[in-house]
Design a protein around this nucleic acid. Structure first.
Lengths: 206, 206
DNA sequence: GTCTATATCCAGATAGAC
DNA sequence: GTCTATCTGGATATAGAC
């Protein structure tokens, strides 16, 4: 009987082509800019006619969406490698390092994942779910450290994106803002610990 | 003699047309996205043929450049209205309110002025000078308050862009992050005041 | 200054043959 | 799946009439 194919060579080949297209798309986007990505050039780089790309993706936005999902899967993988020690400063620093490092090492990916600069592009619900998961992981980890005030969480994400944004915009490739991560971590944690826990819960370590 | 024209009606008319083109360009960019601005639609909206725009601007990038300069002149005007009282918290808050309010009230303007998302667009040296002036005003004002450590200045700009970025990206039109400005100001000022001013901005351990 | 007319080049997308 | 052929449209630029 021939109805239990362990591998589907056709699917594998198709997936390999899709992967190659996406890899090439990332490379071109880093050179030409995210919005400057051209299907003609993309097709030429993978040895196809532009129209043939439509066998793999419904539209240019569909390619952006696949890149969006791939980017968030990479960030989720990075977060899965976290080794927390239970000490707030070290752990918050680890979280900030992960996020800011991930963003600054590939500004085009940061632009696609965290800014909305492609006219008309909205991630699909499935892709957006990955973005929500990343935030959930962050929120859960902060809660482990006793940081559960929504305002504190929002402040943390603002500090992370702020350092990232300034680093990318005003000192690309340098460390003018990334070297401030340790100071910013201390600043943030002092603020959290000095907030009046009147209406909010404080550290809840069982 | 007839060589003392108080007004040049021809120049005035030309300038009025330029202003109308730029106003329309802003309006379209807010609808279509900054990168989605089209010269055809822009010309149609001001009642011209697309080619006629070239009588006023050399290229599309030249239009972006004029918008860039106009945006920074608006921010400079906003900064010129500052009424400082000499009290760090109030004054830093005023500065943060000005910047974040200016950015969030027009995300497209923020994108053009502070992010680099138009492939191939670089502001002209003359326009870039305006951006430098805005930063100079901020740095000078922080110095008035005794904040002159470059790391503190960089941290301040990072907090401002972080709150702005999160507000625009994740709660457009709301106040989820802008309402944190007061907390962030206190957090920042405590960090500044607890740093040792003598050595290399290391955190002091009392 | 603005128009008509024209030109090239590039872009995303679709139809249908093989 | 890939191709040829074709469509619509944008960006840039130049010609010359009025």
């Amino acid at each position: 009987m021939s109805v239990e194919p362990i591998r589907d060579r056709r699917s594998e080949r198709r997936q390999a082509t899709i992967d190659e297209i996406l890899e090439t798309a990332w490379r071109l986007a880093r050179v030409e800019g995210l919005a400057g990505l051209s299907l003609r050039e993309l097709a030429a780089e993978v040895g196809m006619r532009p129209q043939s790309l439509y066998s793999y993706f419904d539209s240019k936005h569909d390619i952006y969406d696949a890149m969006f999902a791939a980017g968030y899967r990479q960030l989720l993988a990075r977060q899965a490698e976290w080794e927390m020690v239970g000490e707030p400063h070290a752990d918050v620093r680890t979280m900030a390092d992960t996020f800011i490092g991930f963003c600054t090492e590939d500004p085009v990916r940061y632009q696609l994942l965290f800014q909305r600069t492609i006219p008309g592009f909205e991630p699909s619900p499935e892709s957006f779910t990955l973005a929500v998961q990343c935030l959930d992981v962050t929120v859960a980890q902060l809660a482990e450290l006793g940081i559960d005030d929504p305002r504190h969480i929002d402040l943390f994400t603002a500090i992370g994106t702020g350092l990232t944004d300034q680093q990318i915009s005003n000192d690309p490739g340098g460390d003018r803002w990334t070297r401030l991560i340790d100071d910013a971590t201390a600043m943030f944690l002092h603020h959290v610990s000095s907030s009046t826990p009147a209406t909010r819960s404080r550290r809840k370590r069982p």
